[in-house]
């Protein structure tokens, strides 16, 4: 300091001022980043919103699994359709299997709701092996051998479930294993949507 007498008070004050300027910037950026991370931690990183919600569901016409019959989505207009993509090789599908069995048995008899499975990228043999072991669905599944229907519905990975209202509009979607609660919630959403 002694070698530089020109370091006046005014100059000191100026360095102080610039310091204050970046101090605020630094603190602001820090706080914003921490809020961002905290908010980021709280969310489900698997959840990806589908642009298909609120849009008419793609009307497929595919062969039924284990039957010489075509299934057309628009045949079920007037009912809420629960469209569940599954495959025998999908590990998470095993987790939700009992939920699908139980709730479809409970809800379908009312005639308001129809479950449809989509057996995607699978073989008939493996699919039946899966159901023989874990229980057959009390509703039909269609065969989506190549996974084209999955692409059409923007499916990221099995299992995914779409809830289509009685006018054929996609009301909600769930990625991952279903639980009874999620299923009930989404059904309500499908009912509410006109």
């Amino acid at each position: 300091m002694t070698t530089h007498p020109q370091t006046t008070k005014a100059q000191k004050a100026e360095t102080q001022k610039t310091v204050a300027w970046w101090q605020f910037a630094l603190i602001g950026v820090m706080i914003m980043m921490f809020i961002l991370f905290a908010a980021g931690l709280g969310r489900d990183s698997k959840f990806i919103p589908s642009p298909l919600i609120g849009k008419p569901a793609y009307d497929f016409n595919l062969k039924q699994l284990g039957a010489e019959k075509q299934i057309k989505l628009s045949d079920y207009k007037g009912k809420i359709v629960v469209l569940n993509f599954w495959a025998s090789w999908c590990v998470t599908c095993r987790e939700e299997h009992h939920v699908l069995l139980e709730s479809s048995k409970a809800v379908q008899p009312s005639g308001k709701v129809q479950f449809i499975g989509v057996n995607s990228k699978d073989t008939d043999k493996a699919a039946f092996g899966f159901m023989d072991k874990r229980g057959h669905f009390p509703y039909p599944s269609v065969i989506d051998r190549q996974g084209r229907l999955a692409l059409e519905y923007g499916v990221y990975g099995m299992p995914e479930t779409f809830f289509i209202n009685k006018n054929g509009v996609i009301a909600a979607k769930h990625i991952g294993a279903l639980t009874h609660k999620i299923l009930a919630d989404k059904l309500k959403q499908a009912e509410a949507l006109q």
Binding site: I48, P51, L52, L151, E152, G154
Partner: peptide
């Protein structure tokens, strides 16, 4: 693809 999968 954008219409089905979103901007993601």
């Amino acid at each position: 693809f954008k219409d089905r999968y979103g901007n993601f």
